[in-house]
């Protein structure tokens, strides 16, 4: 019994450590993401394929377009120089629409039923693979 208690204490310690580590990572990521000078490029993936990249800073006016899922269904995406969001979708859970507009690299938008991922990546961080062309 004593041995079991010891393992339980150890396990609780590990869980607390994990919790602190996660919070720390989130805090640090938030800190770097909220730098106002950073410009972002949106990366749209479907089924692991890069559909298109949109440099937000080069966007003159807000755009709205629809991405069809190969297995049926659609996501209507709204993008402006501020950020990108899924305005409308016919997926069952609607989580992608609820997430709203993302303006930094904290969290990508994912529509799991349609296997669609929208990521914002800072332009300067990976200077090597900055997009030099807009693919539509």
């Amino acid at each position: 019994m004593n041995n079991v208690n010891k393992i339980a204490c150890l396990l609780s310690g590990c869980i607390l450590l994990l919790l602190t580590a996660c919070l720390l990572i989130l805090f640090l990521r938030r800190h770097t993401a909220q730098d106002p000078d950073t410009t972002y490029t949106a990366y749209l993936y479907q089924d692991g394929q890069l559909l298109q990249t949109i440099p937000l800073s080069q966007l003159a006016e807000p755009r709205r377009f629809t991405v069809e899922a190969p297995a049926g269904g659609y996501n209507t995406i709204e993008v402006s120089c501020q950020g990108i969001s899924i305005a409308e979708a016919d997926c069952p859970d609607q989580i992608c629409v609820l997430q709203g507009t993302i303006t930094d690299s904290m969290l990508p938008i994912t529509c799991l039923p349609h296997r669609l991922v929208i990521e914002l990546k800072p332009d300067d961080a990976a200077s090597g693979d900055a997009p030099d062309a807009i693919a539509y």
């Binding site: 990572i25 993936y45 089924d47 994912t110 296997r115």
Partner: peptide
């Protein structure tokens, strides 16, 4: 999804 970016959800 085959996008490594979804790992951002891990924390």
């Amino acid at each position: 999804t085959a996008v490594p970016g979804v790992l951002a959800y891990l924390p």
